[in-house]
Design a protein around this nucleic acid. Structure first.
Lengths: 186, 204
DNA sequence: GCTTTAAAAAGTAATCT
DNA sequence: AGATTACTTTACAAAGC
């Protein structure tokens, strides 16, 4: 059976880590080709990896944020590349820094058009934000799993805020059930 | 103790002055928008509730006052678009929208999404269009919304397209530019919605 | 609160040809 | 009248204002 859950695609993973070492970002900006560092704008140095494609924000404290990767494996791979680059510059990096996934953004397709007006009322105006004058998506905050779902008229959805790989799947099954119970799923 | 007493008076005066300022701002903006007195009173009630619930902390008084007025217009069934409200406020549209979502959630206003039909009388009269055109535009909105075309679309753009289509059908043609100007949307939006609505009506 | 980074959804808008 | 680019919304971490 191919259902909405099979259409789930991870679009972005945000993770944080730290090398356990303070950094001189001015020096790092000179030594790392392609690094962007504008301390007047933002305290972090921006470094992008090509393969896998990701962006890292490196801070003076040695803490690092990695975003833009398409999977958790890619996050580890991209950060591994960065750790090695730092080691190449004789910067001591912990053996295996702990990497924490902070947010996973996924997209999916429910396979039916949605009447967002009816859905806003059916799901309960208190849990829903639907202001088509400001944004075409209906914002639904789900408690378990604790994620936020953006639902569009096309039936395409975005699930964000999850930290577990299977949060998106659980959320999709749950939202499909709730929409179906309202008789609003084609 | 005397200090405390004086401070209480000072705080009370400051709060009173802020409230007076907010209410006078609501009055000024409401006049500029031409909304009836009853809506101003609803807006004042919403503002006082926000004040009592301590929702103003971290937000500008003007922003909350503007959002209260925007919410009151919706609650009373004579909505103004965020663009229109922003024109008479000194707060940027983005902040008004954000503050509205916040107070709406916190006060549990539970306002339904804006119905495009509620813009028809005001936009149509600004364009000197007849009752017949208004009725036709309303019908176009009902039919196309029923066919699922409204999901995710801006209510002002949807209403503008229906009015444009109705003006053509009733031989009281207004240009896309004229309708776009009163509804504060672009001609491109009217064109896109118009095509879908005409098809939904079975014309074309 | 804000700043920056990434990505999707769909609507609206500004600008250029 | 297209096409392109860009902005709206959601979540999240980081350091500092």
């Amino acid at each position: 059976m191919s259902g909405p859950a099979d259409s789930i695609e991870i679009q972005n993973v945000v993770a944080s880590t730290g090398i356990g070492q303070e950094l001189d970002l001015e020096a790092l900006a000179d030594d790392l080709p392609g690094a962007d560092f504008n301390p007047d704008n933002f305290p972090g140095l921006v470094y992008r990896t090509q393969e896998p494609k990701a962006a890292a924000l490196i801070f003076r404290s040695g803490k690092i944020v990695c975003t833009g990767a398409k999977s958790i494996d890619d996050v580890h791979e991209a950060l591994g590349i960065i750790f090695d680059k730092l080691r190449d510059l004789s910067i001591p990096v912990d053996e295996e820094p702990e990497i924490t996934v902070q947010n996973i953004v996924s997209s999916a397709d429910l396979g039916h058009n949605l009447n967002l007006n009816a859905l806003a009322i059916g799901l309960g105006l208190e849990d829903v934000e639907y202001e088509p004058e400001q944004f075409p998506g209906l914002v639904y905050r789900m408690d378990e799993p604790k994620v936020v779902i953006l639902l569009f008229g096309s039936g395409k959805i975005v699930i964000t805020g999850g930290k577990q790989t299977d949060d998106a799947e659980t959320a999709v099954e749950e939202i499909v059930e709730r929409i179906d119970a309202l008789g609003l799923l084609g | 103790r005397l200090r405390k007493w004086q401070e209480r008076i000072r705080t009370k005066d400051a709060g009173e002055r802020n409230l007076q300022f907010a209410l006078s701002e609501i009055d000024r903006m409401a006049s500029a928008l031409g909304v009836p007195r009853s809506v101003r009173e609803v807006a004042s009630v919403i503002y006082r509730r926000a004040l009592n619930e301590d929702l103003i902390r971290g937000r500008s008084i003007e922003g909350v006052a503007t959002s209260a007025l925007y919410a009151a217009c919706r609650q009373e069934g004579i909505p103004r678009s965020l663009d229109e409200v922003a024109e008479v406020s000194r707060v940027p549209q983005k902040e008004i929208g954000r503050t509205y979502r916040y107070i709406s959630q916190e006060l549990g206003l539970e306002l339904k999404p804006v119905d495009p039909k509620q813009f028809v009388p005001r936009f149509a009269s600004a364009l000197d269009l007849s009752e017949e055109v208004q009725a036709k535009a309303t019908e176009i909105i009902d039919v196309s919304a029923e066919q699922g075309l409204l999901s995710g679309k801006s209510p002002t753009g949807f209403a503008a397209a229906a009015i444009y289509a109705a003006s053509l059908l009733c031989n009281e043609k207004k240009t896309q530019r004229e309708v776009a100007d009163v509804a504060q949307v672009t001609e491109v939006t009217i064109r896109n919605r118009y095509q879908e609505q005409i098809e939904a009506m079975g014309f074309r």
